[in-house]
Design a protein around this nucleic acid. Structure first.
Lengths: 149, 149
DNA sequence: GCCATATAGTTGCATATGCAATATAATGCT
DNA sequence: AGCATTATATTGCATATGCAACTATATGGC
């Protein structure tokens, strides 16, 4: 049957299904470690980004992290409520103020470092040196991530 | 400042943030192609799996695809409503019937093949031969995916 | 200064995801 | 058979994600 062949091909080839599983598996590693601090892995990544390049507008975060503006509105609302980030008031553009990390947010980042390292180690073990190298190179070349060395 | 160093380290090293972006970017490729058929990339992966190994219980889908049972309950509900999968009635276990693909679901799979291929090409171009090889090997070795050759 | 257009952000809607608690059914032990 | 334990599935709650439509502001041309 043609049908069976198609299914086999997608099952054996589809890159997205593999990327999505990898994503889910890795997310569990980081979420497990971060749970006691009350932040999710997604929020950590956002917090790190804002802390590093802020003050930064939602639109620019979205461009770099490939996130929809509406997603950012909602994700950042939680982080604003938690006091990890704040809006910079002196914005000249009335269409929204840039975000920056708060002292509380920066403190939290300092605290979670050991937990992040544990999760990072689990991730590294799973994907191997080769996987790590490739993922970093991909992110650096295609997504404008810092290369780290 | 110690704080700045921590932030730099996470930004430059974190594997999860990179995996998540890759996931988002790839998902757009497939969603764009599949939109006109009314199914999301996630649903395609699930449909392919059920078509290939069904009849299969939710719990076993979850183990293979690393999805929470509750996620599957909900995702499959949509696909049941759309008539792409159905519950096998003769189940001996009263705690839920195994899922299997319907004729409608199989037809849909046949139709979307060209679209899937376009998305797959975009994905392959983005991650390169090396990326493809690695992702497939990882999925085969760690997640029990078919190796495809 | 005024209007058309472009840009930034938000809201409504829908799906995706996981944890904790719960419901329900199967299984094992006695 | 009766009960404790285990296994499967679902529901409540919360976050994550993107599209389409909308709001509000900024900008450029006149």
């Amino acid at each position: 049957m043609k049908s069976k062949e198609n299914i086999e091909q997608i099952a054996c080839e589809c890159l997205l299904s593999r990327a999505r599983i990898l994503n889910r598996v890795l997310t569990v590693f980081y979420d497990d470690e971060l749970r006691s601090y009350g932040l999710k892995a997604t929020q950590l990544n956002l917090l790190v980004f804002v802390a590093r390049v802020g003050p930064v507008r939602r639109i620019d975060i979205g461009k770099r992290l490939h996130l929809d503006p509406s997603t950012l509105t909602r994700n950042l609302k939680i982080m604003l409520t938690n006091g990890w980030v704040e809006e910079r008031i002196d914005g000249e553009d009335g269409r929204g103020s840039p975000l920056q990390v708060t002292v509380k947010g920066r403190d939290l980042l300092s605290q979670i470092v050991p937990s992040w390292k544990k999760a990072q180690d689990r991730a590294r073990t799973l994907i191997g040196d080769e996987g790590e190298t490739l993922l970093k190179r991909l992110a650096a070349n295609k997504f404008g991530f810092p290369s780290g060395r």
